[in-house]
Design a protein around this nucleic acid. Sequence first.
DNA 1: CTTGAACCTCTAGCAGCCTGAGGTCACACA
DNA 2: TGTGTGACCTCAGGCTGCTAGAGGTTCAAG
Lengths: 137, 137
Amino acid sequence: MLTIGNLSRRTGVKIPTIRYYEQMGLLAPPERSEGNQRRYARDECDRLAFIKHARDLGLKIEAIRELIELSAHPNQPCADADRIAAEQLHAVRERIGKLRKLERELARIATGCDGEQIKDCYVIRALASHDLCEDEH
Amino acid sequence: MLTIGNLSRRTGVKIPTIRYYEQMGLLAPPERSEGNQRRYARDECDRLAFIKHARDLGLKIEAIRELIELSAHPNQPCADADRIAAEQLHAVRERIGKLRKLERELARIATGCDGEQIKDCYVIRALASHDLCEDEH
DNA sequence: CTTGAACCTCTAGCAGCCTGAGGTCACACA
DNA sequence: TGTGTGACCTCAGGCTGCTAGAGGTTCAAG
């Protein structure tokens, strides 16, 4: 049996976040001590590690809830779990694509300024007008 | 003089967002009609385009506020503006780096499942344990 | 003068937490 | 057995950057 603080230290998930996950239905409400404090069993610890890992990978709470439900039915086909992972991969690739466009433009803006005063500053001018942009956005 | 609706159409910034920017101090409170409706001059339109451009590039409201203040002092040196752009570039590059790690791991997870049932599903197993990860995270 | 679109303010909501107030519990030490 | 203190409890409110809706007013065309 772990206190919430121990669980937090073991998993690296902050205490208020653990309580939040419980509220959101990702973690089952744990047993309580006589004085109403949460006491966690080991498998709750595993489940929290699962949640943290999924969050670190950028999955939304809702997607994680789905995966947890899926994992409760070990004999069902796993196409849904695969779909969730594939969707997440797709979303990540889209974000990367967008960020790389931004990177290019910011690099141009950030390195392009050789003015000395605000009135000549390329950063300020580039932000003020799209005429200095390479692609549409 | 533009109504808020015209300003919105010209800049592509939604009306509630314009009011929000005013509330956040990015846009000066504009003149009002007799009936208390906002009436914008052209330079407000430019400023809003500046804000939108910066937001599209991922700059935070706070950073934009700084830039606006800077641009109000055209004879100051522009090192601060350059710094803000450089910081933003750095942040974008960090986000890209993290996302590419995620991409690699998700690709492995999403394509690695050849099980048919949840209990054999690589997606579920990979999320449950870091043992299947390639790098630390 | 009427209609209907566009505007106003204010409140509340979204994700995914974090912080703080005000109070209780657990446990070691004297 | 008392006491200190650190960990815990709940609940409310805050954060970013908007968005949506209620309920009411104004503007401009016909």
